[in-house]
Amino acid sequence: MKKTEFSRRTALELIGGGVVTALLAGTFATSAQADAKLLAEAIKKAVGEGAMKEGKITLDLPEIAENGNTVPVGVSVDSPMTDADYVKSVHLFAEKNPAADVASIHFTPASGVAKAALRIRMAGTQNIVAVAEMSDGTLYTAKKLVKVTIGGCGG
């Protein structure tokens, strides 16, 4: 008798656990979709709807950031940086921040190399996305996952 009770409880727990997991998975999926939508909107606002190619961009980010309030970011784009062919802008985005925009960096041929570094806030573990806009209008993109131990958007 006792044995069946146990198995019943175990079974119930299993079902309960399953429902909770399914619910959690559901909410995560919707919030991820919302983040992706916000990110897509922010990118569209910054550079329009042009096709993006991967490559050319090097993102220098830590794999694990202990403090989300100040995460060092280095970005460089492969380009000759001449008057005819240079990197106009690099836009940085963080998909899970309250607002996806982070910063837009505008280079000129006088920059010599398309390279910059700054420090940013990250609300939690997420991808940092960079979109580079070349002088001829072509777009390149790159992303890198950063694990954040303590988020940095205050509450």
């Binding site: 910063a103 920059s111 700054l118």
Partner: peptide
């Protein structure tokens, strides 16, 4: 700006850390 011409600029959003730091390059002429 260098001698009055813009050589580098950046637009910042709230995701830029407090006491903002920015490093960049310039080709000397």
């Amino acid at each position: 700006k260098f001698n009055g011409n813009v050589v580098f600029s950046s637009d910042w959003h709230p995701a830029v850390s407090a006491n903002p730091y920015m490093a960049f390059s310039y080709k000397v002429v």
